[in-house]
Nucleic acid binder design. Structure first.
Lengths: 244, 244
DNA sequence: CCAAGTCATATGTCAGACGTTTAATTGTCT
DNA sequence: AGACAATTAAACGTCTGACATATGACTTGG
């Protein structure tokens, strides 16, 4: 492994890229121990702090993990679903919050993705998912529930719906997207949301899933999407009136 | 901004988390310049290399960008779609390659996601997307095309399909997933794939999109999904026979 | 008033050192 | 001989101080 010595700056980025490429290409398999920091420094002909900066970059992406001690070092990390999921959420959250993504765009994407797994969920849902969803519905009917708790329950409900598809890749993709969008959606729909209506739709979706009714599940999600957009319209109209 | 001084290790991770939280919370808005490395070192009561490691972690996630020179420093970066997209691809690629994701699982997720945007694509596709898709079909009919080039063309085709939904959030989510899964799919379907059949399905999908026929588009994608699974069965059967 | 040179600032990099963690090795005692 | 305790070595985590380099701002001369 060597880097371009002519490029005078950002050595740590070059080294990080070099190692990352080796990992992606499979040259460094999962669990493999990288050379020690001193050895890497010698190989790349840079100082140890520079190597360390490169390793920190990789650690931030969960590509490696480090261990101290005699048999310590940097090891190629197996990227787990929870880790990838966490990265997905932060990235998506920042993307949404920093780019003035309109509410309709986010909402549309969220429900399009969620409806994508409705057929699979209807086919494969287990009792565990149904129990989770029903429990969340019970919680959501409690009038004393704070708005924050209602949101959290909503996320759990939809997470169970996604998990019912029993496809980890879909779960990873969708749950990340849904969770990242939820704060945005809540922020906007808080003032106008009618819990009763939402709970009714949640019940309808759960019932469809119980009956393994893919079309019904899809219809429920579609209705939820429409209702959410209505809410957004109401909120935006109210804001416009207030600004006047 | 302060950190827990009792925790004796992983100071750079703590500092990175602290700054990341400030960015996510909006305390540090986009474009804002962070204090200089020396100032941060003083604030957190650590040395400059430690601060630098923390900053490199954030840079690896595209949360900040650094500039050298007199008015330089670390600035909160606006996360753009291309950046998020690139991160998405590396994460998803590693997740798939490191976790023995079965082909059917990946394939199922990929087509479920792609079908999610079929209705929107049928409704909103512009001539530009149709032109792109038709051009790729022409290229794919060239018998001299290498397997690699055929793959690349396939990605471009499906990317145009996704972009036709005209929802940047969907594009970011889906294109990342599709691109990450493509190598896996190609690796498995290479030996058995019939280009003529694939091109025929691509033509059907493009025709449906031209006619703004959402159901037809969905059907075409469904057929492509089924065909891909058939291919996988063939390949796995052949491998099993070879192993005997 | 403009242009060229100088300066200050901040990042990028290096060298060397010390502390801490951890496991393997060694040594001693039962 | 075997088990437990002390030593040792390897590696990461952090610090100090320094120098190199890029770049905008200031100063100065025409």
């Amino acid at each position: 492994m060597q880097i371009d010595p002519s490029n005078t700056s950002d050595l740590s980025a070059q080294i990080a890229k070099s190692i990352r490429d080796a990992i992606v290409a499979g040259t460094l398999p999962v669990g493999e121990r990288l050379p020690s920091e001193s050895e890497l420094a010698e190989q790349f002909a840079v100082s140890r702090p520079t190597v360390r900066e490169a390793l920190k970059r990789l650690a931030a992406q969960a590509l490696i993990r480090t261990q101290r001690g005699a048999t310590g070092g940097a090891f190629v990390n197996r990227l787990t679903y929870p880790e990838a999921h966490a990265q997905q959420i932060t990235t998506a959250t920042l993307l949404l919050s920093m780019n003035d993504v309109s509410f309709v765009t986010a909402c549309e994407a969220r429900y399009a993705l969620e409806r994508a797994c409705a057929p699979l969920a209807a086919q494969r849902r287990t009792d565990a998912q149904l129990v989770t969803m029903q429990a969340e519905i019970v919680r959501q009917r409690d009038p004393d529930l704070t708005d924050e708790a209602f949101c959290a329950s909503d996320i759990t409900f939809h997470r169970a719906l996604v998990d019912a598809a029993h496809n980890p890749v879909l779960s990873y993709q969708l749950a990340g997207a849904v969770e990242a969008m939820q704060p945005l959606m809540n922020m906007i729909t808080y003032p106008a949301r009618s819990r009763a209506r939402i709970v009714a739709l949640h019940r309808a979706i759960t019932a469809a899933l119980t009956a393994r009714d893919a079309a019904g599940c899809d219809a429920g999600l579609a209705a939820l999407a429409i209702y959410t957009e209505e809410l957004a319209d109401t909120v935006f109209a109210a804001r416009a009136a207030q600004d006047r």
